[in-house]
């Protein structure tokens, strides 16, 4: 398989031989899938688990693995989306369609609801709502008595996540206590919680961004179209591309360009940036991922760029 790159770039000019580079039949994908299935089956210990499902690529992979883990039965949990209200419409459409196909109950709770209740107050209408999600998440957890929340977070994403357990114990405030983490031995997970406490569970902990794309390719997992190259209006700010949308218009004097881009991560529309890309398929994206020189969140997330410890602080407050 050969791939032509038309862009200017120091190293990636001309054609690239992909075949010897990437092997999606690799045993490591089997090892990672088996590990994730094992972790998901551990959830049967809990009375009311829910799987965090945003329609993003990691949660799409997680749902796919969950359906395999319990086949032919349905996974014994609901899907939960904490909606910032600032969404890309195609992601929401994908979320709803995928939830319907899976036959699992989809529960959506919005940061908007928390704002209305007064439990979240934002600096402004277009302020990032990523951090506010933690409050809404804890409210949803209390409303439905969820005792375990399953997330698609990976350790390779970010420094604080690199130290996260697979079964991450949270106190009644949802807070992560890095110094009080329980040791996690072999795969003999400690699933014990006291009333009012809960567990965050991360079956994809050991997957890398490249593993995710290789698995998407191998399993033919569907994703929202914005994960693949498309034409989009953007402006350049601070070394990042910002999508121009009704919610995030260009500032006066900024030059709006129409570029071929894709999203590496998808979150709140005010905080997620695309990267320039011509990768139109999972195999193209995998190749790009293997040659990326900027980290997944570094290239795309404003909230993590604000401060080197931004993620750690959000986690202490109950964020994923």
């Amino acid at each position: 398989m050969r791939l032509a790159y038309e862009r200017d770039s120091d190293a990636l000019t001309g054609a690239i031989e992909i075949a010897p580079v990437v092997d999606v039949t690799a045993a490591r994908l089997d090892r990672l899938e088996a590990e994730a299935v094992y972790i998901l089956r551990e959830l049967t210990q809990f009375a009311r688990p829910a799987l965090m499902f945003s329609g993003g690529k990691d949660s799409a992979v997680l749902l796919h693995v969950a359906l395999k883990a319990f086949a032919p039965a349905k996974p014994p949990f609901a899907l939960l989306h904490i909606d910032t209200g600032h969404n890309f419409p195609e992601v929401i459409a994908f979320r709803d369609a995928r939830a319907r196909e899976s036959g699992l109950e989809l529960i959506v709770r919005g940061v908007e609801d928390s704002i209305r209740r007064g439990s979240v107050r934002l600096a402004g209408e277009t302020a990032s709502r990523n951090a506010a999600q933690a409050t809404t998440l804890l409210e949803a957890q209390a409303e439905f008595d969820f005792d375990a929340l399953i997330g698609g977070a990976r350790r390779d994403e970010e420094k604080a996540r690199a130290k996260e357990r697979v079964f991450s114990h949270r106190d009644a405030f949802g807070a992560w206590r890095p110094r009080a983490q329980r040791p996690e031995l072999w795969s003999l997970y400690n699933r014990r919680i006291a009333p009012g406490e809960n567990m965050r569970v991360f079956p994809l902990s050991n997957w890398t961004e490249a593993d995710i794309w290789a698995y998407i390719l191998r399993e033919r997992i569907e994703l929202p179209s914005l994960y693949y190259a498309h034409q989009r209006e953007v402006v350049r700010r601070d070394g990042l591309l910002f999508p121009v949308t009704p919610l995030t218009p260009a500032a006066e004097g900024e030059v709006v360009e129409r570029l071929a881009v894709r999203f590496r991560t998808v979150g709140d529309i005010t905080g997620t940036c695309p990267v320039e890309s011509y990768a139109g398929s999972a195999s193209d994206v995998l190749l790009e991922t293997l040659s990326a020189s900027v980290s997944e969140r570094g290239a795309t997330r404003m909230d993590d760029r604000a401060n080197a410890a931004a993620m750690e602080r959000r986690k202490l407050e109950g964020y994923f």
């Binding site: 120091d10 992909i18 092997d23 690799a26 290789a214 040659s291 990326a292 020189s293």
Partner: peptide
């Protein structure tokens, strides 16, 4: 385009995981 370009040769993605 600084910050989003892909400047390195592709990493190999092989079968063994250690």
């Amino acid at each position: 385009m600084d910050g989003v370009s892909f400047l390195r040769p592709p990493q190999t993605w092989s079968g063994a995981q250690i």
